[in-house]
Computed example of a mutant assay.
Amino acid sequence: MSDLGAWMFIIGIFVMMVAVIVLIVAAIRKANRLKLGSIYTVAGAAAIVIIGIIFMMVSPVKSNESGSNQSIHTTKKSDTEKLESAAKASSKAASEKSASIKGSSEAASIESASASSELAKSESQKVSQAQEAQTNSQNISYGMLIKSDDNKGKAYIVSGSVLQAQSDSGMEMLLVDATGNGDYVEVIVNGKTNAVEDSTITAQGILGKRDTYDTQAGGSNTVPTLYVDDSSNVTVQ
Score class of each variant (00 low, 15 high):
residue 1 M to I: 09
residue 2 S to R: 09
residue 3 D to T: 14
residue 4 L to R: 08
residue 4 L to H: 05
residue 6 A to I: 10
residue 7 W to P: 01
residue 7 W to E: 07
residue 8 M to V: 10
residue 9 F to G: 03
residue 10 I to C: 03
residue 12 G to I: 09
residue 12 G to D: 13
residue 13 I to G: 14
residue 14 F to K: 13
residue 19 A to W: 13
residue 20 V to N: 11
residue 24 I to A: 05
residue 24 I to N: 00
residue 25 V to P: 10
residue 25 V to T: 13
residue 26 A to R: 15
residue 29 R to Y: 12
residue 30 K to N: 13
residue 33 R to F: 10
residue 34 L to A: 13
residue 36 L to D: 06
residue 37 G to C: 11
residue 37 G to Y: 04
residue 38 S to A: 10
residue 38 S to G: 09
residue 40 Y to H: 03
residue 40 Y to V: 05
residue 42 V to P: 09
residue 43 A to E: 02
residue 44 G to P: 07
residue 47 A to C: 07
residue 47 A to F: 14
residue 48 I to R: 09
residue 49 V to S: 08
residue 53 I to P: 03
residue 53 I to C: 07
residue 54 I to Q: 03
residue 55 F to P: 00
residue 56 M to H: 04
residue 58 V to A: 12
residue 58 V to S: 01
residue 61 V to K: 06
residue 65 E to N: 00
residue 67 G to P: 12
residue 68 S to N: 12
residue 74 T to V: 08
residue 74 T to H: 04
residue 74 T to G: 11
residue 74 T to A: 07
residue 77 K to Y: 14
residue 80 T to R: 03
residue 81 E to N: 08
residue 81 E to P: 07
residue 84 E to L: 14
residue 85 S to M: 15
residue 86 A to Y: 15
residue 88 K to M: 05
residue 90 S to P: 08
residue 92 K to P: 03
residue 93 A to Q: 08
residue 94 A to G: 11
residue 96 E to D: 14
residue 96 E to T: 12
residue 99 A to T: 14
residue 100 S to D: 09
residue 101 I to P: 08
residue 102 K to I: 04
residue 103 G to V: 07
residue 108 A to S: 15
residue 108 A to K: 14
residue 109 S to F: 06
residue 113 A to E: 13
residue 113 A to M: 10
residue 115 A to Q: 10
residue 115 A to T: 07
residue 116 S to H: 00
residue 117 S to A: 07
residue 118 E to P: 04
residue 118 E to H: 09
residue 121 K to V: 14
residue 122 S to G: 09
residue 122 S to A: 13
residue 123 E to K: 15
residue 126 K to E: 14
residue 127 V to G: 12
residue 128 S to V: 08
residue 129 Q to V: 02
residue 130 A to F: 09
residue 132 E to G: 06
residue 132 E to I: 15
residue 133 A to M: 06
residue 133 A to V: 00
residue 134 Q to G: 07
residue 136 N to T: 09
residue 139 N to Q: 12
residue 140 I to T: 11
residue 143 G to S: 13
residue 145 L to H: 00
residue 149 D to S: 11
residue 150 D to A: 12
residue 158 V to Q: 05
residue 159 S to T: 06
residue 167 S to D: 01
residue 172 E to Y: 03
residue 172 E to H: 00
residue 173 M to Y: 14
residue 173 M to V: 15
residue 173 M to H: 09
residue 175 L to N: 02
residue 175 L to D: 00
residue 176 V to E: 02
residue 176 V to S: 05
residue 178 A to C: 04
residue 178 A to R: 08
residue 179 T to R: 00
residue 182 G to S: 00
residue 184 Y to C: 04
residue 185 V to T: 01
residue 186 E to R: 15
residue 188 I to C: 01
residue 188 I to R: 09
residue 189 V to P: 04
residue 190 N to I: 01
residue 191 G to A: 06
residue 191 G to L: 11
residue 193 T to M: 05
residue 199 S to A: 01
residue 200 T to H: 02
residue 200 T to F: 04
residue 201 I to G: 02
residue 202 T to Y: 03
residue 203 A to V: 01
residue 203 A to C: 05
residue 204 Q to L: 02
residue 204 Q to S: 13
residue 205 G to S: 01
residue 206 I to D: 00
residue 206 I to F: 05
residue 210 R to S: 08
residue 211 D to E: 00
residue 212 T to I: 04
residue 212 T to V: 01
residue 214 D to R: 15
residue 218 G to N: 03
residue 219 G to V: 04
residue 220 S to W: 02
residue 224 P to K: 05
residue 226 L to Y: 09
residue 228 V to A: 10
residue 230 D to V: 04
residue 235 T to E: 06
residue 237 Q to I: 01
residue 237 Q to C: 02
